[in-house]
Design a protein around this nucleic acid. Structure first.
Length: 93
DNA sequence: TAGCTGACGCAAA
DNA sequence: ATTTGCGCCAGCT
């Protein structure tokens, strides 16, 4: 539970700039490969600046959602080097 | 304590 | 290629 959340936060915090991880990948790293949904929930709840939740996207490479508005997230990613050409599958490692 | 929600993912139509 | 439906898990109320 909380441990999982902690792991997720840690993993997300470890995401290097210019990289994006899918919720599923994060869940996998956190210890629960099938908790992608839960991860999303956690992110939504998360408010920690240390956790670049904007680097978390769908496994499809699309942007998921964001507390602050997906637009902001998209811009952020673009600024970091992740080119979201509208519907581009970036998903890097 | 139990139930609802959801920033997901994948399969099928 | 898209759209629709179902499944799954943890967190929150």
């Amino acid at each position: 539970m909380r441990d999982f959340k902690q792991s997720v936060l840690a993993v997300v915090a470890k995401i290097p700039k210019g990289h994006v991880l899918s919720y599923k990948e994060i869940a996998k790293r956190a210890g629960n490969s099938g908790a992608a949904r839960a991860v999303g929930n956690i992110m939504k709840q998360n408010r920690n600046p240390k956790v670049p939740c904007h680097r978390v996207i769908h496994s499809d490479g699309r942007i998921g959602g964001f507390n602050r508005g997906k637009e902001f997230k998209a811009v952020l990613l673009r600024e970091e080097g992740v080119k979201l050409s509208h519907r581009l599958k970036v998903l890097r490692s």
